[in-house]
Design a protein around this nucleic acid. Structure first.
Lengths: 225, 225
DNA sequence: AAGTTTCTTTACAAAATCTTTATACAAGCC
DNA sequence: GGCTTGTATAAAGATTTTGTAAAGAAACTT
């Protein structure tokens, strides 16, 4: 089982059945909705990885449903529709649909298009290596490199460095960093921070006395570039 | 001009012409390639934001071209092809194409699909940057620039500058500024203000003696333009 | 249990920032 | 002009914030 959940929204029970069987036999988890109201409730309660949306629903215009979903739902939506007019297609795509298939569609093509949109929506966490000049951090393996050399960081050092990397360019306040790393009751222990910032600089900066990556913003916090 | 560059890969000159005109009139920047070799070279030398790829190229099978591109090119690729067989479509999508349009296609639909794939590939997190001529202030990252150069401001300087920027054009009284920055009990310490205004001018004005941004309204306060 | 690593705490040095003082300039007014 | 009022700037303290080393405590390893 893939554990990728797809929500099928269609009023015709035969089509839902067909899609369910097709998708399940391709290792997708399936949930169903037969009208607009149900679709929105289901999507909100248990957001799927992808929505297959029929535009011809009984209780509401499909374009409206799409708009409502897109107010908050950011994952892929593929439209399945009997209408093949350019107007409908353009409108749906501009309302945030990721693809538009005209019924009757070919099963293999649908599956390929599902794979395609899922691929592009999940490719971000596929390669979680952040690069900053001569420094790089691999979020998955927790490996930090400086000019290809692996740098060994302790847990606390790594957590701190991670925070800085993930917020490149932004100033992170002492307050925020202390809260994130040591917990809310440590927000006044700025000394901890100083010690670990010094440690990181010693390990990561070319010249710890003139840091180019870990910049201190006096009176505010630190910034990573 | 959008400044979004699209590479058109097609061997038929009429189609390239037509696409070029269509895309350019929709504010895209266009480059062209008429065969596989040229396409790969162009894409490598000057990577576009999107590639429109015809599968029927004279010098190489389109699927192979797609595979070669996908070895390193991560931005969207839309296939334009005369072949409408499911086999071709599935193969292309599984090789990393983001969409597949069968020729002849409808122009409006192509543009909508281009918008769609570009939308999902460029999920920008726009942060509010205020611009004032050669000066800019990024409230999120707390970065102030003067003609692209980062200017380092201390906490007090930054707070003061922020206040001025947020009230561009308005006169802020000494009273008000002192109260906002130092607190209600400092409303008579106008000297503080003068010192910090001078500091800001020294850092931000081209000629601190003849300020063009931070204007003094004698007897009242200061105004930022 | 000894040794190693990592974290916490202390102490002091260094740097940055803020406050205060001193002085100069400009404009308006008698 | 001489006086007052409001403003500008430099520079000397004063204060706050930050950096660094190093010792002791705690947590892990073997």
């Amino acid at each position: 089982m893939n554990n990728v959940e797809i929500l099928i929204v269609d009023d015709e029970v035969q089509i839902r059945k067909m899609l369910t069987i097709t998708l399940q036999s391709n290792d997708y988890k399936v949930s169903e909705a037969s009208n607009a109201k149900e679709a929105i409730i289901r999507a909100a309660n248990h957001p799927p990885e992808l929505i297959l949306l029929d535009l011809g629903l009984p209780d509401e215009n499909g374009h409206i449903v799409l708009q409502k979903l897109r107010e908050w739902y950011t994952k892929p939506i593929i439209i399945l529709s009997a209408h093949s007019s350019e107007e409908d297609i353009v409108k749906a795509l501009d309302n945030g649909a990721n693809d538009y298939l005209v019924k009757p569609f070919r099963t293999g093509e649908l599956l390929a298009r599902i794979r395609s949109v899922l691929r592009s929506s999940t490719q971000e966490d596929e390669n979680p290596i952040l690069n900053f000049g001569d420094l790089s951090i691999d979020l998955a393996t927790r490996i930090v490199r400086k000019t290809e050399e692996i740098v060994k960081l302790t847990t606390t050092e790594y957590t701190l460095f991670c925070l800085l990397c993930k917020n490149e360019g932004k100033v992170l306040t002492h307050h925020y960093l202390l809260k994130q790393i040591w917990g809310p009751s440590y927000i006044n222990e700025s000394q901890y921070l100083r010690v670990f910032i010094a440690q990181l600089r010693k390990k990561l900066e070319d010249d710890p006395n003139h840091p180019t990556h870990i910049i201190t913003e006096s009176g505010v916090g630190y910034r990573f570039i």
